[in-house]
């Protein structure tokens, strides 16, 4: 694969040392609170349908649907279980996810995290003990692009997520994080 590039402009440029991949930041869990307000789907709550949040989203309950989307960050706690594709800026998974994941900045799968799906993210971090099955599509240069684009909507992956078709109704529900009604809320599409 690589010989083809011999003599090409790209392959003749840097020395081997300069091509050494840059280590990703280690250890510290990714913070999940960049936009202030956080909507929460609490423990014991089950949702069948799609979820769209304008704020950060913390998931301790169960979601089964086609998509979970946030313009900011999504944090799935150890009790959280999501069967849907997920799109957000920064995603941290300590629970269980079956579905494709698109993080425009970073995905972290914590030590208790279990993920089955295809991931698209500029940066991906697995912590010791994390379980992952699927593919990871990484583009380190994409992070800056995403930032300069103002964290624009995540591009959903075309890969199979096994999701359900969206339901017909849309309802605004209270922000469980403390009634932050002035903040953009949480939108549910029932299944």
């Amino acid at each position: 694969m690589f010989e083809k590039q011999k003599g090409s402009k790209e392959s003749s440029a840097p020395e081997p040392e300069t091509r050494t991949p840059q280590p990703a930041p280690t250890a510290a869990p990714a913070p999940v609170a960049s936009s202030g307000a956080t909507a929460m789907i609490g423990r014991g709550i089950s949702i069948s349908g799609d979820v769209t949040a304008d704020s950060n989203l913390k998931i301790e309950g169960v979601i089964e649907g086609r998509s979970v989307q946030s313009k900011h960050d999504v944090d799935i706690s150890e009790t959280g279980k999501v069967t849907a594709s997920i799109s957000a800026k920064v995603i941290r998974i300590s629970g269980e996810v079956t579905g494709d994941i698109n993080a425009t900045e970073k995905l972290t799968i914590a030590k208790s995290g279990r993920v089955q799906g295809n991931v698209v993210a500029p940066r991906v971090q697995l912590e010791d003990g994390a379980l992952f099955r699927g593919s990871i599509d990484m583009n380190p240069g994409q992070t800056a692009d995403a930032r300069s684009a103002g964290g624009s909507a995540a591009r959903p992956t075309a890969l199979d997520s096994g999701g359900k078709p969206p339901g017909p109704s849309t309802a605004q529900v209270a922000d469980a994080a403390g009634g932050a009604r002035k903040e953009p809320g949480l939108t549910l599409k029932s299944g």
Binding site: Q22, V124, R133, D137
Partner: peptide, 22 residues
Amino acid sequence: GAALPETVNFFSGFTCRLHFVD
């Protein structure tokens, strides 16, 4: 093989697609 943290970290410096098939 299984997806290990250090392998993912290593490839995070590349534009790449990793298929983990354990």
